[in-house]
Amino acid sequence: MSSSEIANTATVDKNGSLARARVLRSMRWGDVLFESLTRTAAISVLVLLGGIIISLFIGAWPAIKTYGFDFLTTQRWAPSLKPQPVLGALGPIYGTLVSSLLAMVIAVPVGLGISIFLTELCPHALRRPISIAIELLAGIPSIIYGMWGFFVLGPFLAEHFQPAVIDFFADVPVLNVIFAGPASNLSLFNAALILAIMVLPFITAISRDVFATVPVVLKEAAYGAGCTTWEVVWNVVIPYTRVGVIGGVMLGLGRALGETMAVAFVIGNAFKIKASLFAPATTISAAIASEFAESDGLHQSSLILLGLLLFVLTFMVLTAARLMLMRLERNQGK
């Protein structure tokens, strides 16, 4: 090897390691950049939540300052009163809570029934199509539920269902107040029924998933001891999955509380609280949806305050739901 050749390889080597060092350095920069990019995006999720709370609080501040705690206990909603509107949240809060709870009363047994059907009774070939069909209920946009509830369900219930129930309970004390006439196309009950259909897929999906976590040996042992299917479900499956099922129900409740368009169409937007479930009412979200665009000043601030209350309410319910589902996962050792 001549000396010039040796010198040549040395330069190549030097150039090559230089180039490699450059590439490595740029890769390290790329690494740092990508990591900080992803971390920023992740933190932006937290910022988003903070932003929502702060923005609602700022918007609601004039109403908080003017009404204070009276806002929660006042039923009167008179936005155009002079010199200052009288606004209270009692009606929408009542409507939100009652419609959502009633929806859960309808949706929980039905959802559990469907999950039991899917996990215990359904032929294997039908299991997936039926689950998907139920889950598609969650895909239908809220406004479609509203239109359907307004044009189809409302008139049907007012004509055929409500009069029958009103007559049936006419002589029963208490119930004749809850189910008092007159029948109405727009009512708290209709809203609850629509909400029940809308949260049904959430409750079904979660309870089906947690039912599937029951160890097969447990069920087989119960069957082996001579239990009927129902006894296995009631004494083994449900106790084993109780926390998860409650978590799913709370998740559904969180959805129901904030549902807007469907409810706005069918509830009738009446701020006065009536004892009858067949009377029109309103919810927080329906009130915001129908009045916000034409509101200003204190009226608008009060609507934002309603939104803040709704957010706090759903936040609490969803937190409870997540904590329960997390506890279930921990118990499974995940």
Partner: peptide
């Protein structure tokens, strides 16, 4: 973040509207 994200996932969409309005 996972916890907060799950809350945002189920947050009422009308609240998001109010937030963006403000």
């Amino acid at each position: 973040i996972r916890f907060i994200n799950d809350i945002l996932l189920s947050a009422p969409s009308i609240i998001i509207g109010l937030f963006v309005y403000g």
